[in-house]
Design a binder for these strands. Structure first.
Length: 300
DNA sequence: AAGGCGGGGAA
DNA sequence: TTCCCAGCCTT
């Protein structure tokens, strides 16, 4: 199975900039943070512009946060942009400007969780690691365990099973990790897998069983979007990013923007825009003027 | 273990 | 419309 995946990857891998030999460990880390819940197609141009502007942790560490949030643009979950800058500052302050090598050290960085720590250890430093993202979980779950989709939450048992599939040799493990991930992204997709093109089709437990349905379907809940606080937060952030410079905006304007241009009082939940703005301030994505009476806000 | 957190494009 | 995306953090 390892050989089949490695051979397939050699012929099918996408030429992504953070996979090239000249990509720095910092470039790999930036790509992994951007790829947390944002598809490759949207990350690639943003990553190129980002790395040209801020090639090293020190460059990002010293940038104005407002510039960082504007460069993040609409990649989504803008808290990631602030965490990435915090991460850069931590690397400068505590690691002499160099991306840490061990998973334990990587895990201490802001915005770096189990997946990202493993991915950076493997893809930036060539270490053997158990890289478990949504793609790997799906491919392993199907091919080796015969399940349509992995369980909603990653448990210890699944993690230990996956660890057992990672080749012992470091160099081979890196190719396996990226190969399985790529297979999940291009062939063994969540919705409409292209089993006819899969290098594992002859030994896939899920395919052999007749592609049984997802047993966890009832427990999966897709997040609503329209009318949520997240949508309102997104409107406010988009408005502030688009303003020239970093001027103060009135709370009244921001609440109207958050309401989609309508009178907030007319919303089903009139308190929603105010709640969203307060949460943005709590997250550090928006700064409130020192005087509470001023009712003025801007990017940090 | 569960819920919050963006935004776009494919199915 | 619905689903899904190289998750992380807090409770």
């Amino acid at each position: 199975m390892h050989a089949a995946v490695l051979r397939w990857y050699d012929g099918a891998a996408r030429d992504l900039p953070w996979r090239r030999p000249d990509a720095s460990p910092w470039g790999v880390l930036v790509s992994e943070v951007m790829l947390q819940q944002t598809p490759v197609a949207r990350v690639e141009p943003a990553w190129r512009a980002w790395m040209e502007r801020w090639p090293t942790p020190a460059d990002l560490a010293s940038a104005p946060a407002a510039d960082v949030l504007r460069a993040w643009d609409r990649l989504g979950y803008p808290r990631r942009a602030l965490r990435l800058q915090d991460c850069a500052r931590t690397i400068v302050a505590e690691h002499d400007g160099a991306v840490p090598v061990t998973e334990d050290e990587l895990l201490t960085l802001p915005g770096v969780g189990a997946y990202t720590a493993a991915a950076v250890a493997a893809f930036a430093h060539g270490a053997r690691a158990v890289v478990l993202d949504t793609n790997v979980r799906r491919v392993v779950g199907r091919a080796l365990e015969g399940r349509a989709l992995p369980p909603p939450t990653l448990g210890r048992a699944e993690q230990e099973r996956a660890a057992g599939y990672v080749p012992a040799d470091a160099a081979t493990s890196v190719r396996w990790n990226v190969g399985v991930m790529e297979l999940g992204a291009l062939v063994c997709t969540a919705r409409s897998p292209r089993c006819a093109d899969c290098p594992l089709r002859s030994r896939c437990a899920w395919l052999a069983a007749g592609r049984p349905a997802d047993e966890h379907a009832a427990r999966r809940r897709t997040q609503a979007w329209h009318g949520t606080d997240r949508q309102v937060r997104g409107r406010i952030m988009a408005h502030l990013r688009a303003l020239p410079g970093t001027p103060w905006a009135t709370g009244r304007d921001l609440l109207t923007v958050g309401a989609g241009g309508a009178d907030p009082a007319a919303l089903p939940d009139p308190a929603q825009p105010g709640r969203a703005l307060a949460s943005l301030v709590a997250d550090g994505l928006v700064v409130a003027a020192a005087s509470a009476d001023a009712d003025l806000y801007r990017l940090p």
